[in-house]
Design a protein around this nucleic acid. Sequence first.
RNA 1: GAUGCAAGCCGUUCUAUCGCCGUGAUGAAAGUCAAGGAGGAAAGUCCGGGCAACAUAGAGCAUCCUGCUUCCUAACAGGAAGGCAUCAUGAAAAUGGUGACGGAAAGUGCCACAGAAAAUAUACUUCCUGCUUCGGUAGGUAAAGGUGAAAAUGUGAGGUAAGAGCUCACGGUAACUUAUGGUGACAUAAGUUGCGGUAAACCCCAGGAGUUGAAAGACCAAAUAGGUUCCGGAAGCGAAACUGCUCGUUUCCUUUGCUGCAAAACAGCAAAAUCCGGAAUGGGUAGGUCGUUAGAUCAUGUAAGCAAUUUCAUGGCUAGAUAAAUGAUAGAAUUUCCGAUUUAUCGGAAAACAGAACCCGGCUUACAGGCUUGCAUUUUUU
RNA 2: GGUCCCGUAGUUCAACGGAUAGAAUAGAAGUUUCCUAAACUUUAGAUGUGGGUUCGAUUCCCGCCGGGACCA
Length: 129
Amino acid sequence: MNSFNKEERLCNVKLIDKLYHNGSSFLVYPFRIIWLVADSDLQFPAQILISIPKKRFKKAVDRNLLKRRIREIYRLNKSELLYSFLNQRSEKIIFGINYIGNEIAEYPSLEKKFISAIQRLKKNISESV
RNA sequence: GAUGCAAGCCGUUCUAUCGCCGUGAUGAAAGUCAAGGAGGAAAGUCCGGGCAACAUAGAGCAUCCUGCUUCCUAACAGGAAGGCAUCAUGAAAAUGGUGACGGAAAGUGCCACAGAAAAUAUACUUCCUGCUUCGGUAGGUAAAGGUGAAAAUGUGAGGUAAGAGCUCACGGUAACUUAUGGUGACAUAAGUUGCGGUAAACCCCAGGAGUUGAAAGACCAAAUAGGUUCCGGAAGCGAAACUGCUCGUUUCCUUUGCUGCAAAACAGCAAAAUCCGGAAUGGGUAGGUCGUUAGAUCAUGUAAGCAAUUUCAUGGCUAGAUAAAUGAUAGAAUUUCCGAUUUAUCGGAAAACAGAACCCGGCUUACAGGCUUGCAUUUUUU
RNA sequence: GGUCCCGUAGUUCAACGGAUAGAAUAGAAGUUUCCUAAACUUUAGAUGUGGGUUCGAUUCCCGCCGGGACCA
């Protein structure tokens, strides 16, 4: 139910290239979301890529912590917010999350921002199709 | 008991819910169950090895690195025990810290400013002797002065016109020789000879280094597009010249298309030795598997050694990801800090440095707090 | 994961081991002008950091910190 498997992560190099070249992006501070409608041979409705820039967070511990928090938020909220929406439209997307904040955010505020970012993503998808 | 120094060790814990990673069991599968899942520095990548690929007759040169001794080690720029130098404390004995600690007596270079002179000595003020127009001048000399980071080994005596290692005595320091002690660095004693510093200046001496790194390397291998071979079909499987032959080029004829023309003929231009289908096969991309976690391994005991370390015995298996797992939330406990006061309670905040990426041995750097041992100082009690 | 290089004024660069660390430009003040620009005069400003070698270090050596390049 709330699982987060390998198939839900974006690991393919070519897909990532495609995402960064052709994807459309928007900004909900402290996230920068870049997304693309994918081909339909994916197992899950969405594949996700989380990225924390090394330039802003020099220490590996900080980067790990942020990535784990974001992943946890996604894991707990995806089915409710995103999967039902995508299944209803029977579409599949790939998207990447870049963290562009300058400090390590706490879990509750991060969750609030993330939910608003997902709402914006849904809006963008329905507008573009 | 407190404080300081040194060495070593630990470096938050527990429960619930929801997850992640590989391993094992079970199952046709989905899944279910079980026991595991970051560090002392995982960091920096500064050294040294293992491992792998490539290279490799032997020797020399160049380049780079190391540099007191002995030992430990797979190896090391690491460690242990010493030696020597130096600094601190101390009356001394000694204790503790620090040390890139071979060679300046192979050669070359450099030593700013100041100073007479910075290294084959020289001569500013001096000192002494001769001459003198008394201003100096010729010669001798290097003790004293001042300069500087550093001034030709220091002190005393003799000696002399004045002086000088010129001579002597007592030292300092270096090299060599001999003797004794020590595995050795070295120490002690005697003798001979010498006397500026600088080798983290060039250099000399001794020893060492093949190159590249898991993105090494080995194997499996889709789709698409090429390569090779074979089979089938279509199309100029035409002619001549050039050439040893093939390929190719040119000319003629042929076919097709376009333009001129109402159309044909004719003229002009362009195109024509490959295309299509099937089968096999080689390289090889994405991707995957191995390398890859059982080892110079860990724990306990035993024996050897001053110690680093090693021998032997018993037991254990202890992360293995790959756009990269080891987490999130809630509650409780522990410790520290702040505030309040009822002085042991309440409220709040914080819990260091930091995240494996082939594996080991070191070094360096970061680190809240706690524990143990040793030494020193001080206080109290007996 | 590995290999290599570089840190000097605000910026771009200099500087045999000899100290007053230099030049251009930017900044500030003044002169000139009705005002500005240009020109002229003056002025402030730096060796990434901590050690070591040396009489003396930007320079030589070592440890940190920061920045950059390369290896598929």
